[in-house]
Design a protein around this nucleic acid. Structure first.
Lengths: 203, 203
DNA sequence: CAACATCCTTTCCAAATGGAAAGTTTTTGT
DNA sequence: ACAAAAACTTTCCATTTGGAAAGGATGTTG
């Protein structure tokens, strides 16, 4: 989506319209002004996120155990990999204090409220070390999101397509190893590195 | 800087100029077109980063030990906290494939090349678990950067000023705890959470 | 001091962009 | 089938924005 790629100011209704094959005035007719369109996008985004979360959470895992945490991480990392625009939009709007940021924070707060008790449990049970909750939240979420948000950079830098299944799997294993201190159970063939990185290994 | 806040397309030379107190044509005279200005900003950004890195690395720490890693993390997190625009610009440009992204990748590659051998060492010595190098890189760097990149959101969400010393310190302790599995050595008074988050704790 | 280059301002332009207004087609309810 | 409402298009406008051009001020050098 254009808002994810160019930010609110960089995106323009006309391009969005032609992308969908309509005129820019039609978009205005249905959504109102640019801010209204943006809000509609955000609402839809969170609706889809919540739908995916609750569906898979009902279908499954108890976040308070290591096993459940692993399952949740696999789900969440997969979701981030397939919907990187969502994190991109949110990051874009975090760059400057704005009315849009406040609107977004309403959604974020609801998500976080649901996860806080779970995260506290993980600490209490010693699954993860005790730490400041805010840090824990942003460490976890950015760990899962950022490699996919930055996929174009990683592609240019390491020649790896982060949206590919092996890369997603490798990253999942890395996150689990990092969080739980457990090395990958089945030895993975990690996506190969380019020459400049391999040579750096030697030095 | 405007490029960090609004992205390349969202920023405009005229506003940048008035911010500095000159006319927009003067900026054009000195830097050329908008892309040239952007490149000059990036070059300066990396020059300052490299200066800070090499100065403090010379003054210091051996990244291959736990102690050294801790010291480096403290430095790097502090740097990220005080220069969040740097990560912001890079993230902005990662949103879409562009000539600017390629330009940036040149700088990034140099930084990464210097760190890869160090990171490999950390894994070989068992300081951190074995994992895919690309994941490790982005886990580490985003852990250190993102809370400060997203400081406006965190402020609105948790009422915490991430740029304050206690918040930086708390985050540093969290990162160390997360990476090395070591709980904070001296018990910190973590910045307080707002009511909505405390109540979530109870449930 | 005169010629020249550097630095900076003023003025202008064309394209892009958000938005308004008015008109046309399609759908819907009766 | 017909009137009203909803959906959509065309046309236009004011503002913003990157950029070009020309002129003026301020050194700088022989």
């Amino acid at each position: 989506m254009a808002f994810a790629r160019h930010g609110f100011e960089g995106a323009n209704i006309r391009d969005i319209a032609t992308e969908v094959g309509v005129t820019h005035t039609l978009i205005r007719y249905h959504f109102g002004n640019k801010s209204d369109l943006w809000k509609a996008v955000i609402d839809d985004m969170y609706a889809r996120l919540n739908a995916a979360m609750s569906k898979d959470q009902a279908g499954g895992f108890d976040l308070r155990t290591k096993e459940g945490l692993r399952a949740w991480l696999r789900f969440y990392i997969g979701y981030c990999a397939k919907n990187p625009e969502q994190a991109r939009i949110m990051i874009n709007e975090s760059m400057v204090r704005s009315e849009r940021l406040d609107y977004m924070v309403g959604h974020i707060r609801r998500s976080h409220r649901a996860l806080i008790p779970v995260f506290r449990h993980l600490m209490k049970d010693g699954v993860v070390p005790d730490m400041w909750l805010v840090s824990f939240f942003y460490i976890i979420s950015t760990m899962c999101q950022m490699p996919f948000v930055l996929s174009t950079t990683i592609e240019r830098l390491y020649g790896v397509d982060m949206t590919s299944e092996p890369a997603i799997e490798a990253h999942y294993e890395a996150v689990v190893a990092f969080m739980l201190g457990e090395p990958p159970r089945h030895q993975l063939q990690w996506p190969a590195l380019p020459d400049w990185a391999k040579q750096a290994q030697a030095s």
